[in-house]
Simulated assay, not measured.
Amino acid sequence: MKTYYYDHSASTPMLPVVIETMSELMKLHYANAAALHRSGADAMKLVDRARASIAERMGAEPSEVVFTSGGTESNNLAIKGTVNKVARTTKHIILSAIEHASVYECVRQLESLGVQSTIVPVDSLGRVNPEDVAKAIRKDTVLVSIMQVNNETGAIQRIREIGDVISTHPQVRFHVDGVQAIGKVPFLWKEWGVHLYTGSAHKFGGPKGMGFLLVKNGIELASLLTGGGQEQGVRSGTHNVPGIVAMSQALRLTLEGRDARRERMFEMRRQLLKRIEDIPELLLNGADADNEDTAPHIINLSYPGMRPEVIIHMLEKQGVLVSSQSACSSKSLLPSRVLLAMGHDAERASGSIRISFGDEHTWNDIEILSDKLKAVVAELRPLERNLK
C-alpha cells in the first residue's frame, strides 16, 4: 500500500540532492574543522562557505549566523542567552500563549529561577495584537519572543508591527522563532526589528540535528555550551561539516522556489477545504480557505468528542499520515494549548489533527486525502453516537 505523507510541519523529507551532498561530504571531509592540518582547514572552508551562503539568503552578515543542533537549541540559546547576559537582578520576558514548547517550557524553567514572564493572548485566529505586547513591556523587560508562523494552525504573526513596538524600547531584545516560516512565507528579519531569528534544517528539506540562530551584530548572548569556543564562543562543539553544508544547500533550494511554492500550496489548501465542506464533523481551526493571512502549508481540523489518535490511526491504515498538535506534544493526552488560547473549548482542543503539505504533493494527493477523510469520518459516526 502506498503511503501518503502529510506531516511536513513535523519534518520534511530530505531533498535527494542534499542527501547525496551530505553522503559525499561524510566520505571526503571527516576531519575536525578546528584542526590545524590541511584537512581541517579544508573542512573549515566548507563551513565558512556555508555560513556565507546562509547569511546571504537570510539577509544577514556571516558573523550573524550561529550554527546549532536545531530549533530547540536555537530557541533556548536566544532566550537563556539573553537573560543570562543581562546583569540586572529583575528580568522579565514576554511571549505569546501559542509558542512552541521549546520557547514556552524554556520560559517556565527560567521562572523557577526567578525570571518573571507575561503571556500575551491571541485572537480566535491565533494572532497576537501588537498593542498587547506594548502594554506588557516593563522597565525590566529584556526579551520578547513571538513565533512567526504557528506550528499547529499556521497563523502568521504581525512581526513587523511588533518589531515597531519593541524598537521604542532599546533595552528589549526581539526573538522570532521562524522554524515554520522559512521557505513558506516572506521574512525581512532586520528590517522588521528582529534581533534573534531561529531556523531548523529539517523543516526545509535539510538534515535533522542542524539549525541556526541569527544574532544581529552587537547583540551579546551568554553561551549555553562551553568548551572549545566555536561559533565565536557562543556555541562550543565540533562543527558538523556535512550537516552544515547540507543545510545551506537545502536553504538555497527551498528559498529559490518559495513564491511558487506558496502560491501552489495555497491553492491546495483551498481545494482540500472546499472538498471537505460537506463533512460537518470536521471544524477548521484558523483562517478559512479565502484568507491568505496564514501559512499555506498547514491545516488544523477538529472532530470534537473524538480522540485525535483514533482518527490518525484510522487514516494510517489507509496509508495517510497526519499528526496531532506539534510532533513534540503529539503523545500528550492534554488538550492543545494553542487551541485553548484561541478560545476553543477543551473538547474541540482535544480532538484536533494537523495536515501539512510538501513539495511532492499533487492535486491527486489532495483528492486522495479528502476521500480518505470522508471515509474515516463516515466510519466514526456510529462510534460517536455510541459514545454519546
Rank of each mutant, 00 (worst) to 15 (best):
Asn150Tyr: 11
Val185Asn: 10
Gly178Phe: 06
Ala155Cys: 03
Gly183Asp: 10
Lys190His: 15
Gln116Tyr: 06
Pro130Gly: 04
Ile162Trp: 01
Ala181Tyr: 07
Gly178Tyr: 10
His202Arg: 10
Gln171Ala: 11
Gln180Ile: 01
Arg173Ser: 08
Leu113Ala: 15
Gly205Arg: 14
Ile159Phe: 02
Gln148Ile: 03
Gly199Met: 13
Met147His: 12
Val149Lys: 04
Thr153Ser: 12
Met147Glu: 12
Ala181Pro: 06
Leu188Phe: 10
Ile156Gly: 05
His169Pro: 06
Leu196Asp: 00
Ala181Ser: 14
Lys139Tyr: 06
Gly206Leu: 03
Ile119Phe: 07
Ala201Ser: 14
Arg127Lys: 15
Thr141Asp: 05
Asp177Met: 09
Ser167Trp: 02
Met147Thr: 12
Leu214Tyr: 00
Lys208Gly: 11
Leu213Ile: 02
Tyr197Val: 04
Gln171Met: 08
Asp132Arg: 03
Lys208Trp: 09
Val144Met: 03
Val122Cys: 11
Arg138Ser: 14
Pro170Phe: 03
Asn129Pro: 04
His175Pro: 00
Asn150Ile: 02
Met147Tyr: 06
Gly193Asn: 04
Gly178Ile: 06
Gly154Glu: 05
Lys135Met: 13
Ala134Phe: 08
Ser124Ala: 12
Ala201Val: 11
Gly209Val: 07
Asn129Phe: 08
Phe174Asp: 01
Leu213Tyr: 01
Ala155Ile: 05
Ala201Pro: 06
Ser124Glu: 12
Gly193Leu: 10
Ser124Thr: 02
Gly114Asp: 08
Ala155Pro: 02
Ser117Trp: 05
Val120Leu: 14
Ile137Lys: 01
Trp189Gln: 09
Val194Met: 05
Gly209Ile: 07
Thr141Ile: 05
Gly163Trp: 02
Met210Gln: 11
Ala136Asn: 08
Val179His: 14
His202Asp: 15
Arg138Lys: 15
Ser112His: 11
Ser124Arg: 12
Gly154Thr: 07
Ile162Asp: 01
Gln171Lys: 14
Gly199Gln: 11
Lys184Gly: 01
Val172Ala: 00
Asp132Ala: 09
Phe212Cys: 09
Gln180Ala: 14
Leu188Met: 13
Asp123Thr: 14
Glu191Ser: 12
Val194Trp: 03
Arg127Pro: 05
Thr118Arg: 05
Ile146Glu: 01
Leu113Glu: 15
Val165Ile: 15
Phe174Pro: 01
Phe212Arg: 04
Val120Arg: 03
Gln148Cys: 02
Gly193Ser: 06
Ile162Cys: 00
Gln157Thr: 04
Gly211His: 04
Arg158Val: 09
Gly205Ile: 13
Gly114His: 06
Asn150Phe: 05
Arg160Ala: 13
Val142Phe: 02
Gly114Arg: 08
Val194Ala: 02
Gly205Asn: 12
Trp189Cys: 09
Ile137Glu: 08
His169Tyr: 15
Ile119Thr: 14
Ile137Leu: 04
Val194Asp: 01
Gly211Phe: 07
Tyr197Phe: 15
Pro170Gln: 07
Ala134Met: 13
Lys216Trp: 00
Ser200Asn: 11
Asp123Pro: 08
Leu113Lys: 13
Lys135Ala: 15
Ser117Arg: 12
Ile119Ser: 14
Ser112Val: 10
Leu196Arg: 01
Asp164Gly: 07
